[in-house]
Each structure stands twice: as C-alpha cells, then as structure tokens.
Design a protein around this nucleic acid. Structure first.
Lengths: 203, 203, 203, 203
DNA sequence: AATGAATGAGCATTCATTCAT
DNA sequence: GATGAATGAATGCTCATTCAT
C-alpha cells in the first residue's frame, strides 16, 4: 500500500527551479521560496528532498556538465580528429538547438560560486580539468598538434567560459553565433595554421 | 577652524576593503562589517562615507576598469599597430608587475554581479563596449585587418574574461602566463595569419 | 495532508499587537520586536504574515475605521434625523461600552502618521471625506439644515478628532463624557438653534 | 578679545530648523543632520548649542505656544467680553496674516509626541490647562456664561486642535477659513444662544 | 565656536532551516 | 509525502551622540 516514490521527479523539479531562479538572481538571492515557486512546489518540500540549498546546487552543477557532454556526444558523428575538435567547440558554443540562455546565465553564476563554496569549487575544478584533458586528447590526435597542448586546451576553455560570460552580460556585444565561428579561427591560430580563406587574399 | 576632510582617503580605504573581501567571498557575502574590518574602520563609518553598499561596488568597478586602462597606456610605447594590439593583450593578461590576483578574483565577481544589479550591468556593458571599440580600432589599424573586426574584438575580450575566470577558479589548470601567450596565438588565427615560428617546429 | 492555515488569526494578533504598542509609543517606536511580544509571537513571524510594518499599520487603520462605523450602526435604531445625527456623535465620542482608550490613543498616532506616510494619508483622507459626506447627509435630512452643511460637517469631525487628541494627551482636562455632551450643544450652534433647556436657566 | 556670543541666534536657527523639518517628517524622522541643514548649519553645532534633540523640541513647543498667545494679544483690542472670546478663537484659527501651515503641521506632531515623551506631555498639558483657564475666564465674563464653563472651554480647545489636525492632513476637506467661522457658531451652541440669522427662518 | 568624522546601538527585513500537523 | 507556520541569526542601514581638531 505504499505510495510509489516520486522523489526523483521532485528532485528534478527542484533542480530545474534553482536553474531558472539562479539564472535571474544568482545563487545567494535564489531563496528556497523562489526555487519552490519556480518548481511549482511548496517551500517545505525542498528541504524534504534535499538536506540543504547547497546540495541542490551541487546536483545542478553536475547536471549542467552532463548536459554539455551529451550534446558533444550527439554532435560527434565523425571520425576525423579535426571534425571532433570542432564538434567539441560547437557543442559548447553553437547557437541553435540545445542552446539554453538560462543554462548559460546559470553557469556563469556557478563559475563565481566556485570561488566561494569549496564544494562547488571542487566540482567545477574537476569538470574543467576533465574537459581540459578531453581537449588535449583531441589536440594530440591532430596531424600537427600544437607545441603545448595543455596551454592550448586551457585557452580554448577560457574562451568558452568568457563567451558565456559576455553572452549573459553583454548580449549585444556581438551577433549570436559569433562565438563558435571565432573560436574555430582562434584554434587555427593556436595550431599555427594559416587560414586558407585568408591565405588567398594576402595584403 | 574647520576639521580637514579625510573623506577621499576613507573612501579609498573602504573601496580597497571591498576589493579584498569580495575577492574571497563575492559581493553578497561581503558584509559591511567585513568590509569595515578589512579597511581597518568601524562599520558605521562605511555608511557615513557611502550611501549604500552598492555605491561602494560601483566605485570599485570604475577603479578596476581605470586600472587596466592605465596599465595599457603604460605598456604602449610602440607605434606599430601590431605591437599596440599585443600591448593591449598584455595589459590584460600578462603576469608579473601590475598583475593582482585579488583584483582578478574580484573582477570575476563583478562580472556575475553585472547580471543581477542593473547599475553594475550598465557600467560593465559600457566598459566592455568601449574596450571592444578600442580593440576594433587596433585591429583595423593592422596591415591585414580581419574580415569581421567586431567579432574578432569580441572574441578577444571573451578570452580575456574567460582567462580571469579560470585563473581565479582553477589556478592550476595551466601555468601562469599561459594566457597572454595563448591569446597572442589565437589572435593570429583570427587574423588568418599562419605562425611562421610554429610552422617550422611541428611536434 | 496539508497543514491548516492560521494566517487570519495570526494577522489579527499582530494587528492587535500594533494597536497596543502604538497607543503607548506611536508608530515609529512600535518596533517589530515589541509588536511581536504584545502579540505573543516571535519577531520573525510578523514578516511571515505581513510584507512590512507599514502593511500592518494600513490594516489596523482600516479596522479602526470599521469599528467606529459598526458602532454607529449599532447605535442607530431610530428614524428621526435628529436622533441619527446624535447617534453619529455618540458613536464617536460617548464613553462607556465600546469606548477603548487604547484605540483612541492609537488613532491619534494614526492622524499624525497620515502626514508622513503617503499610504496612510490616503486612507485617512478617504475615511475623513466619507465621514464628512455621511455627516453632511445627516445634516441635510434635518428639518432646518445649516446654511453650509459642508463646513458644519467638517467642524463636527474636527471636534471629534480634537476630543480624541485631548482625551489621550490631557485626560484630566475635562470630565469623561464631556465630549459627546459638548458636541451636541455645539451642533445646535452650527444649526442656528437656541437651546431651550439652557435658555431657561441662565447663570 | 572674546568673540561676541551668537548662541541665541544659533539656537533660534536650530529651533526654526526643527520646525521646518518636523512639519514635513515628524519628530522621529527629523534627523539632526536634516535640522542642521534646514538651519543652514553643520550637524555638530546642534549638539554644541543643545544637549539633546529633545531639548530642541521642548524649546520649540514653548515658542509655538508663545506665538499663539502673542497673536491673541495683538488681536485683542476690544473690551467687550464677547469680542475677546472671538479674538481668542480667531487668534487660533483665522487664516491670513499670522497663519503658518508649517507651524500647524508641526503642532500636530507635537500633540502626538506629547503622548510619548513625558517632558513634552508635561509642557503640552500645562499649555492646554492654561488655555482652558483662559477660555474659562473669557466665558465667565460673558453676560450669560454657560452652565459648565470648564466643559465648554475644553470643547473649544478640542475643536481648535481638531481643526489643526484636519487642516494638516485633509486640507481639501473644507474651504480655508471655515474653522474660525464654524467655531464661532459652535460657541453659540455651547452658550445656549440661538443664531439671529437662522432665528428668522424657523422651521 | 565650529566642523565633520567616528561610534555603536537599534531597527526593519530576509531567509535557510526546522517541525508540528 | 506534503504543507506552511515558526524560529532565530544575520544584514544593510539609520542616527543620536561624542569628540578630535
């Protein structure tokens, strides 16, 4: 006669609620009441399903990371190392299907929270290091890998994070979609390649 | 007869206090008491010299921006367009004299706060747009300007902001000083140039 | 399943608490802590049930006004216009059952607060204007209405408010109950009537 | 070589400053800084010339009372008891020369403060009692004094205070100048007199 | 006399967390 | 599971008063 547990569904509602509220207000100002309202629940339920507000954040961070990776895996249908590197960049920066402004704004807030909450910092660092190794592997698989793949990978990640920040804070700084386009070009710079397009019109 | 005003000195102390505390805790958790303590003052004094905590933040943001610009002007002793572009990047990313980890961590917090506090957002956007125009002018002065200087400028700024974020949150992701080095290379990619140096020593 | 709401009861407790405290200390000095204590609650609960201290005041003002009107309606069992006018005055000034010194002192504080808080001023003005129209109608229903019913009505209200003030601030200025008695006589003056009773026993 | 003392002038400036500020904000919200600014002085000077904010208020109350009395004495050029009574009422309520809306609003605030601050209450009560005796004497000097001069005097004072309250809080309740006019008529009611004008049109 | 900085207590309000129902 | 009331600590801000200059 026991009710079927809906704990998983409730937890997901709450995590989604935090994402929505945090995108607008940041973590500190995301009150339990606001999260519950965004989740369509009552405040008391939040602490029934999570021990603390921080616990919700930690799960949200994990999910955001997972979301990016699954997008990468979806994009990656090609075996060419070059194409795989570009798929990585597109999975992070391409606009269109799968792009979620709220998730981006939320991620920016997560990045700042990583400086304050040790637990968040730990997850964030783990995610970044794992992505860096991933990119590094992609770079090393290229026919002409860069001199210092570690630095190149870090630079690529930095640009991605910076594009998130600018997209959230200064949306009219550049046209949508500039980010992936530019990072592709910048990557050629990191690899010491010339741009074929440009190569044809030297000054 | 009248007591000489020390308001300017006190205001600067308070602004510096906010910078220190905010680098560690972010804006929300930078309490007036903590700011005052970092400034060596009593809490009441903060509101004697500033109408609100936000007012302190706004002044701090202006000062951080000014600091970067003056570093740029100090670095810029060369007339070559190329050298001036590189000086801009170095003024933002080069480690060594003038680099200030606390200021960087604080700036990351400012970037998040720009999403929440309209007044901060306004200043932040103004600063970013003005920097973008500055970079755009530097790019246009080059012998072979990029096809889309606006996008290239935005991408350069994004990488700078992203490097700040990673430097603050994941300091061991890449060796210090990688940022300027990498962005120089990336800029070559944006400009469609090959790297002669790198081409000759493929790994 | 769901916990039954006791919000209405709690709100009333808080409003009553404000009345008690405000009668003694006025609005500014009626701290949330004092209101909560008078209501037998903890301070945090006040802001759980009301968004602000001002919101409590606004509800209290509405209730005080309602209380007077219901007393008037209770007194008003007579169809003679004259008796109805006297019932109005008695509902405001008669001592005895229904008179509440704390409510009077509180109302005096409300009158001052009406000069400071725009929202209170608005309610206060509305209440006064509606009472004035009510008195005006009562005056016009008399066999010999005064020359200027609007002024007469305003004067009657002024005397009522003034009696509250003096009752609260100088309780030993005149014996209790003088107020209704005197205002009845003053009303005869406004109506241009002589007092037959008094006429017969000049001193 | 000692500077001539300007203490008296300074004190008066401060008292006038409190009057202005208190008329707008009430006593609690009349900050020392605001008083000083209204007085054209610096905050520190206020406490140089007065031991406390309350001390300023006490002096202000005394002056307001004195101002009314001197207006009464100015108006009182007639020996007829009736005319003297009317002059008293006019000195309190007549609009025109000598009327000061700020002083009226301030006096209303004083009336509320009399309920809170014992010292203010004491002065206020003394003033009211002395005025009551004054009016009582005026009433007793009439050819046909009222049956209960004490009550009649109290009622007259109540109407005056109430007119101040309404003039400050609901200025458009009645046309300016209604107050003195109405109180003259009301006084006839208190004295048991008919109004000659009205007498001619009995119902 | 005068100035304006400094202090510290007090206040309304917010909010994560707890818990009775 | 679910609800929403309850708690209490924390925080930005105000302000009378003091005091060094």
């Amino acid at each position: 006669m026991s009710r079927p547990s809906n704990t998983q569904a409730r937890r997901q509602q709450i995590i989604d609620g935090l994402l929505q509220v945090m995108a607008q207000r940041g973590y500190e100002r995301a009150t339990i009441a606001a999260i519950a309202e965004a989740a369509g629940l009552t405040p008391g339920l939040v602490h029934y399903h999570f021990p603390s507000k921080l616990a919700v954040l930690l799960e949200l961070v994990e999910q955001l990371a997972g979301r990016l990776n699954s997008r990468f895996e979806r994009l990656q249908r090609d075996d060419s190392p070059r194409a795989r590197l570009e798929a990585f960049i597109d999975s992070r920066l391409a606009s269109g299907e799968g792009a979620d402004p709220a998730a981006v704004a939320c991620w920016v807030a997560v990045g700042t929270e990583a400086l304050r909450q040790p637990e968040v910092g730990e997850i964030y660092r783990r995610l970044m290091l794992s992505q860096k190794e991933q990119v590094e592997r992609l770079l090393l698989a290229l026919p002409t890998p860069p001199a210092c793949p570690a630095e190149a990978a870090a630079a690529i990640l930095a640009t991605i994070e910076g594009c998130y920040q600018l997209a959230a804070a200064v949306p009219d700084l550049a046209p949508p979609g500039f980010a992936a386009r530019s990072l592709h070009a910048m990557t050629r710079g990191l690899l010491g390649e010339g741009s074929e397009v440009r190569r044809t019109e030297p000054s």
